[in-house]
């Protein structure tokens, strides 16, 4: 059995807007195994993105805490938290969040700005990952000149270029047609097989079922259902 990589304990994130309190994440306990591919589904506003931000150390929980390999994120200093994001976490945002005035290559390279990767290495790694994602002839394009699928792949390349331990993918297929979606899905599957731990947020249950091993369904900030998908994940750790 693989050791748990990420564990949340009574994780809550509330937003106070005047008299009303929005419980974006409410008492969530999740255990994520190393090398697992977890699907996170739920209707809009159920708190999926908020949960990802908490786990990525971008947001601070109102209560409860998160442990990464047994170390609580709450005990980390701001600098250590930044380092956690810089070295270990890859994120794909719901809206691609590409910087419009940088080239595709520049956007990907940027992920290596903050983890002390030397400049020449940065460029080489960025080109490498972009080639893998069939973006080799789009290196110098601005995001505005790229198609939605290409933009999504650039965003994915940016998340993967640093070779993270975990990938938080928030609706990576959200704006894509079926072909593109399938392409991304198979890519994620392949990465997972190579040992990458993934949390995939999607409202496409079909996609979740075909890609992930376990699916958690959220509703109003709470986990209402956990299911193991039919396409049982291929546990390479056990094989090894």
């Amino acid at each position: 059995m693989a050791e748990s990589w990420l564990k949340t304990f009574n994780l809550c994130r509330y937003y106070r807007r005047g008299p009303t309190e929005v419980k974006a994440v409410d008492n969530v306990d999740i255990t994520l195994e190393k090398g697992e591919c977890l699907g996170l589904v739920g209707s809009s506003g159920s708190g999926k993105s908020t949960l990802l931000n908490l786990m990525a150390g971008l947001d601070t929980p109102t209560s409860g805490h998160i442990e990464i390999e047994g170390h609580s994120l709450a005990t980390l200093s701001r600098r250590e938290l930044a380092a956690y994001r810089a070295y270990r976490v890859g994120m794909v945002f719901q809206s691609f969040n590409l910087i419009p005035h940088y080239t595709a290559l520049g956007n990907v390279e940027m992920a290596l700005f903050f983890n002390k990767t030397p400049r020449p290495v940065r460029r080489r790694l960025a080109i490498e990952i972009m080639e893998k994602l069939s973006l080799a002839d789009r290196l110098d394009h601005r995001p505005a000149d790229l198609s939605g699928g290409e933009q999504q792949r650039v965003a994915l390349a940016r998340a993967l270029v640093k070779k993270p331990e975990i990938l938080f993918a928030d609706e990576p297929t959200g704006n894509l047609d079926q072909d593109n979606s399938r392409h991304i899905a198979s890519l994620l599957k392949r990465l997972n097989l190579q040992g990458l731990t993934i949390i995939l947020v999607t409202h496409d249950l079909e996609l979740a079922r075909s890609t992930t091993g376990r699916i958690i369904k959220m509703h109003y900030g709470q986990i209402i259902e956990t299911s193991t998908s039919p396409s049982k994940r291929n546990d390479h750790h056990d094989l090894a």
């Binding site: 990525a56 971008l58 701001r78 600098r79 930044a82 380092a83 956690y84 994001r85 810089a86 070295y87 976490v89 994120m91 945002f93 969040n97 910087i99 940027m110 992920a111 700005f113 903050f114 983890n115 940016r158």
Partner: peptide, 16 residues
């Protein structure tokens, strides 16, 4: 702002 947020998500610390 978005670029700054992105940089932070990529591991930029406040001093950076």
């Amino acid at each position: 702002k978005r670029e700054i947020g992105l940089m932070k998500s990529l591991g930029a610390d406040e001093p950076d």
